[in-house]
């Protein structure tokens, strides 16, 4: 016991000696930040970085709104950026004047959710489609029918991630509507479809990178990067872009208005717009990043990956969804409750 205590004291003393100039607190999605990127930033600027995970946009928003969180940087999805701005939670860190601003790809510079990139810079972007294990099913996988009209071979082996907004919008598009529709007749059909489809599902769970890799789950609604990581572990896993409509999203880095370490946060924002660093982000989580010139620093398998390169004929089916209005949200929640009762 005594040795243990001495050891602890020693570690604490060393940690004290090695203390950096400043600190930076980042609030990001779990299993999403490359440790190498953080180490590099820490060394370059002598800053101590702490990363805290969240699992959904709503969790992140409510924690930040409550205040007293101590975070400097948050990474919301595009559909939430305007909510943050509307609640006056973000600062304008002078992004267009930053050294690396010019590296943002032209398509990602003037985006609806942040015209002129005053508040946010790209972290990663991706799609929500389907992951299928080809040994279990070898038909067409570019369709949400994988989980909404589950083929015989996949019955009882399908997972649906419990991401209400995405699942509802994917189902609405499958039934021929637009995301965030308030067409009640269509929503009734959507509910009936989901309730009927559910009997063929095995679970509604997260963690598909691992469960698709080890074959616990044979097909799932999933994100492209997660599917990519699963394929690297298990070559039978493939990613499909539902032709009825799939979801395109971008997660963005923003500096919080009540940040304690504003200068370090600005350094970080500029840092991740450097192509070499953006490539580090992507080579970990396996999503594209929206920074020009980062491809040349990426591992080769990223450049031609079917999970990253959207097939030309399916590009039009991708939809950027926004956060739905309150009345639609209530309908979505009611259907979701009916589904999970």
């Amino acid at each position: 016991m005594k040795i243990l205590l001495t050891g602890t004291a020693l570690t604490m003393a060393l940690a004290g000696l090695a203390q950096a100039e400043g600190s930076l607190n980042i609030y990001n999605w779990g299993n999403y930040t490359n440790p190498e990127l953080i180490e590099k930033f820490e060394e370059e600027y002598d800053v101590d970085v702490t990363i805290t995970d969240f699992d959904s946009n709503t969790t992140a928003l409510s924690k930040i709104e409550a205040g007293g969180h101590g975070f400097d940087i948050v990474v919301p999805t595009h559909s939430y950026v305007q909510i943050y701005v509307g609640k006056d939670l973000l600062m304008k860190p002078g992004i267009p004047e930053m050294e690396n601003y010019g590296n943002i790809s032209e398509v990602w510079k003037n985006v609806d959710w942040d015209p002129g990139r005053e508040y946010t810079v790209p972290w990663q972007w991706g799609t929500t489609g389907v992951a299928v294990n080809k040994t279990a099913y070898d038909g067409d996988i570019n369709t949400s029918a994988i989980w909404l009209d589950t083929p015989e071979e996949l019955k009882g082996k399908v997972n649906v991630v419990p991401e209400m907004q995405d699942i509802m919008n994917l189902s609405v598009m499958y039934m021929g509507g637009e995301p965030c529709t308030n067409d009640k007749e269509l929503l009734r059909q959507v509910r009936d479809k989901l309730v009927e489809a559910k009997s063929d599902w095995m679970s509604m769970d997260y963690g598909m990178t691992e469960k698709m890799s080890n074959g616990d789950v044979m097909a799932s609604v999933n994100w492209n990067g997660s599917t990519f990581r699963a394929r690297l572990n298990n070559p039978d896993v493939a990613y499909g872009y539902p032709k009825e409509g799939y979801i395109v999203w971008m997660d963005n880095v923003a500096v919080l208005k009540d940040a304690q370490n504003v200068e370090n946060a600005k350094l970080f924002v500029n840092f991740i717009m450097d192509p070499e660093n953006a490539a580090l982000i992507s080579s970990f989580a396996r999503y594209a990043n929206g920074i020009d010139g980062s491809e040349e620093y990426m591992p080769d398998e990223m450049k031609s990956a079917p999970e990253i390169v959207v097939p030309e004929e399916l590009k039009a089916a991708g939809k950027f969804t926004s956060s739905c209005p309150k009345e639609v949200q209530d309908l979505y929640t009611a259907i979701w409750t009916d589904l999970q009762k």
Binding site: T58, P162, E163, W201, S203, D205, W336, Q340
Partner: peptide, 21 residues
């Protein structure tokens, strides 16, 4: 449970999280 069928605890969490109520 795989999240297909909720229990009360999960249902309450839904209201504070994605349900926004």
């Amino acid at each position: 449970g795989g999240g297909k069928n909720m229990m009360v605890g999960n249902f309450i969490e839904l209201q504070f999280g994605q349900g926004r109520n």
